[in-house]
Design a protein around this nucleic acid. Structure first.
Lengths: 348, 348
DNA sequence: GTGAAAGCGCTAACAA
DNA sequence: TTGTTAGCGCTTTCAC
């Protein structure tokens, strides 16, 4: 229970602390010294103090994945992939949630104080204050999401425009004419880009399309349920609901069900993220895969590259979205919805 | 991008580093000094280095929640609650995953090196090696789950026995006679206790009950699907599947669906954890609520208490499980399954 | 109320 | 190969 220091190990082994340090870290040392020191360390249960080591070395060997919307399962996918990549380079990964008990700004500032050597961020809202903190954070940062041009940070944005194009084209192809876009809060980054993407896609696809937008209170199932219920009660009921993410989409599915609507006959519902949830819900939720795993991998690689070479040019990595059609819309393409798709809608 | 130290702040303010430190930390200092130092710190964008501060103070103000089965949404619930409690006491919480890229033992050892002042663990497997590391970890540990007697650690076990009793009694009451228990891997802690709990409950409820057990490869939907499919193909098909957690249960639901079974007429399925998933799936999954939020809260409180008072007696906090009946079983109790229950099956 | 100095535990120069 | 020494950035005695 009590901490043992390298000084005690050195004393126990009968060598200097310098020799102990060298022996422990695999630097030059005689075989005899190494044996003695390792034996002493083992016996005493020595583990190097992280704070002292970090202070001296100037790095922690730790990276952080900071995520605002921790309830969204897509972040687990990303985290798993990020961890795979960074642990191969000898880093440990910790996950921090932003926004529940502390603001993104606080979390970034805290982590930047020297807890980690770098971080990957999935922010909900990109405020000027956040950008400012990001700019002066002493450790490398990669943002999973879109940033204002000129932010000077490595980013792996989601391609909302293409995503929304895919969805709208799909809906038009199956004959939908009155589409409701159920967004998350518009003042969030995914919210804003989702909206713009949807508006552009709708205008491009078919100028005569009837569209409306509304906001769910947040990106959750419950909020999606409430928002969908509202729009489905309007005089002119839409024949398609485009949800800003899968959770909202699932809420919409439940709302439609409660109102006795047949899906996809009366109403099509689509989501975004292509999470396992979309695959497991009934009817299956047609969803755009934004490439979570791939984007997680890219973010991790960008971060590692910047740690290695801090002055390299700013990079932006793009991943093409892909529509995965399931039972919540009509399967009129060559992409069939499987009864239970173990590959989560992606080719194995 | 470059780190600014307290020395620079002191110089910029025209005071000694000692005065700068005092001013920054609210110790005795004249109003004039405080003003000068704060201004300098602001201007230079100073933030205290975490490693140096931790080394000097002997604590990090950081706690960790280390979880093996990160794909299980129940851990997000726990984490949210843990964070709420510890942040109220001024701690930051980080989440670490164990087992994907590194073993539990490694994670505990690493975190115990001084990265955090304490940790809460949700281990998948409790090996002797893990117990050994836990015993000599220099920071307080609370385990969310059951430990061998005499481990000498604060724990918040799940009451699997009562949970399984509730399930079995429910199944017997609705007339089921042939129950298959679909466990996760038996060499995991939840697996072992789930099995024992089920066996005891089955024996107690009705000695003549036909029961069988099988193992899913892990605690996931996909593994649950595969395992359920296996048992449903056996000559004598069970009329109830008791899944060790909700994910396995959902997999079982899908398997039954693929085989054309009517639920709950042909087959009852139950889960454990009462996650939001159980509520949102169709049919709704009857599930035992193990009190994730409450248990998270208790674990956090136990940890804070032990940090404050390291020598206090070892505590074990229990939370009574509660059965939440939904559409995957017959509603024969007074606890109705709602079409969409915003309270996630619990009273508001 | 303030500054000089010691030291947290560790690693890395530098000498020997 | 080894020991001595300095110092990472910070807080905290201890004199003044």
């Amino acid at each position: 229970m009590v901490r043992v220091t390298i000084t005690q190990v050195a004393a126990h082994a009968g060598v200097s602390v310098a020799s102990a340090s060298r022996a422990l870290n695999g630097r030059v040392a005689s075989a005899k010294t190494v044996a003695k020191v390792q034996h002493a360390a083992q016996e005493l249960g020595y583990v190097a103090d992280a704070a002292a080591q970090s202070l001296k070395r100037g790095r922690t060997n730790q990276l952080a994945y900071a995520v605002a919307d921790i309830g969204n399962p897509v972040h687990v996918e990303m985290m798993t992939e990020i961890e795979r990549v960074v642990s191969a380079s000898g880093y440990r990964l910790v996950m921090s949630s932003m926004g529940t008990s502390s603001s993104s700004v606080d979390v970034v500032r805290e982590l930047g104080r020297g807890y980690v050597d770098g971080m990957i961020l999935s922010p909900q809202r990109v405020t000027d204050e956040l950008l400012e903190v990001l700019a002066k954070t002493p450790v490398p940062v990669v943002v999973l999401g879109r940033l204002p041009a000129g932010a000077g940070l490595d980013t792996v944005p989601a391609d909302s425009f293409t995503a929304m194009h895919l969805v709208v084209e799909h809906l038009v192809a199956e004959g939908r004419a009155d589409i409701a876009f159920v967004n998350g809060p518009a003042d969030t980054t995914p919210g804003a880009f989702g909206h713009d993407g949807f508006a552009a896609a709708a205008a491009a696809a078919h100028p005569a399309l009837t569209v409306r937008s509304l906001e769910a209170e947040n990106f959750t199932i419950t909020a999606g349920y409430a928002a969908a219920r509202r729009v489905l009660h309007e005089d002119r009921r839409p024949d398609a609901i485009v949800a800003a993410n899968d959770l909202i989409g699932i809420g919409a599915l439940r709302a439609a069900e409660d109102l006795g609507l047949a899906i996809p006959e009366d109403l099509t519902v689509t989501g975004v993220d292509n999470t396992e949830l979309a695959d497991v819900i009934r009817p299956g939720l047609t969803s755009v895969d934004l490439g979570a795993r791939e984007r997680g991998r890219l973010a991790a690689e960008l971060l590692l590259a910047r740690i290695t070479e801090p002055e390299r040019a700013v990079h932006t990595a793009a991943v093409p979205p892909a529509l995965v059609v399931r039972g919540s819309s009509r399967a009129h393409t060559s992409n069939p919805a499987h009864a239970f798709d173990h590959n989560n809608g992606r080719a194995g």
